[in-house]
Simulated scan of single mutants.
Amino acid sequence: MNAIPRIFGRLTVCLMMLPAVAWAQSDAAPVRLSAVEAGQQRDRIEAVGEARAARSVTLYPESTGIVTRLNVAAGERVEAGETLVELESAQARNALERASAELRDARNRLERYESGKGAGTFSPTTLENVRREVEIARLTREQAQLDLADRSRQAPFAGHLGLTDLEVGQRVDPDTPITTLDDRQTLRVRFRLAGHYHGQLAVGDRITLTAWARPESPVSATIQAIDSRIDRDTGTFQLEARLDNRDDRFRPGMRFRIIRELAGPRHASIPATALQWGDNGAYVWRVEAGTAERVNVTLVARQADQVLVDGPLEIGDDVVSEGAQRMRPGIEVRIIDPATLDDYPRIDAVRDTPAQ
């Protein structure tokens, strides 16, 4: 009976000695190391812009009169030179015919006078007066042609028409709007940025646009103009981007969310898990020659699972990214080779013979 207590006591002593033996065999702290890499800070700029057509006009009549023909349909595309509105033009046509007849008479008279010039029938002064009459008749006819042309309004360029309030038979004057015309194959998107970004963007840079009405479809645009001055009241400056709209997805007046990332200064990049915090701020554990060293750093920015820091770190330095809670200054660090963790001896296996 006395043998049992003695065996139990010896077993207890052996179990108590096992942790000490294990620690004596390996007194280093197992951690994961990551190399310091070069990273670049990136500033994300966001703004709101409004789209404008590449060319946009409100059309007005050139003269006063009654509308006799109206060829305006909202949303319809027209070509340059296509007639949109015609006014009553009988009086203008009569004036052109009369001016044409007077020009013919003046030219015939001049021809007769010049044929008798060599015989001395007409004095030089008379010939000069007739030539002046021809020139006046020619100018009168040209003015009559312009007056007739003003009785209709053509599209100055190809584009899409807007709404109109005109009706056939309505009397209009040069202050009566006919409709709008937009060339929207290319849109101009204007937006403003804070003054301290001036000089960080250039003509030709690409930006990302997202229409508020279509947040699922971001598109790319090119900066084509940058204002030369900063507004004194707002501290901002204006930019204009060109958006290709040949597929006619967007409309003038749409609002866009504008995003652009700017490359900033370069810093040391480390895993976010390597950054520790203490009473004196942020720090990391750097391992050199198998020994841990605490290095104070300054957090600059977070980028996904990495952080950018400033401090006495060099590219390629090893920092502790896992197991930092076990670190102490000067502690020995045992570097584990992951390839050896699964280095188990081979096990032979025999396949069973199928039952007969």
Rank of each mutant, 00 (worst) to 15 (best):
I259T: 15
L59Y: 06
V320A: 03
T210A: 05
L11P: 07
A202P: 00
A349M: 12
D175H: 09
P5Y: 09
L262Y: 02
R184G: 03
A301V: 00
R260D: 09
V307L: 05
I347W: 05
L313R: 04
P338R: 07
W285R: 07
A35P: 03
G281Q: 05
A73E: 11
G195E: 13
V67G: 01
D352F: 08
D105L: 14
T12N: 11
N2V: 11
G235V: 04
V67F: 07
S89L: 01
G39Y: 00
R266D: 14
A99L: 02
A282W: 08
E293D: 10
V172S: 08
R192E: 15
G169N: 07
D105A: 12
G290N: 09
G65T: 00
R10A: 13
Q238W: 07
A324T: 11
Y344L: 13
I258N: 06
R42G: 01
V284T: 05
N280T: 10
L33P: 03
R260Y: 01
D337Y: 10
E167P: 07
V130S: 12
D27C: 04
I315K: 14
L166C: 03
R246N: 11
E216Y: 05
F8N: 10
G81C: 09
L187P: 02
I223K: 03
E142I: 13
V172P: 07
I336F: 09
D317Q: 06
F250G: 04
A38L: 14
S220Y: 04
V350M: 09
E62H: 14
T179N: 02
A301L: 04
P312N: 14
Q325L: 12
A355I: 12
A53C: 07
E142Y: 11
C14W: 11
T298Q: 15
Q25I: 11
Q91H: 07
W23L: 14
G169K: 02
I335V: 14
R6D: 08
P354M: 04
R206W: 10
I258G: 06
D27H: 09
R246K: 05
A74I: 08
D310T: 09
A35D: 09
V172F: 02
R246W: 04
H267C: 00
A155S: 03
F250K: 01
I336S: 10
L110F: 13
P177K: 01
R232Y: 03
I4A: 13
Q185W: 07
K117H: 14
Q200L: 14
E332Y: 08
V350R: 15
R42E: 11
A158K: 03
R42Y: 06
T180D: 05
I7T: 10
V36I: 08
H198A: 15
A202I: 08
G81N: 04
F122R: 08
K117I: 10
P345S: 08
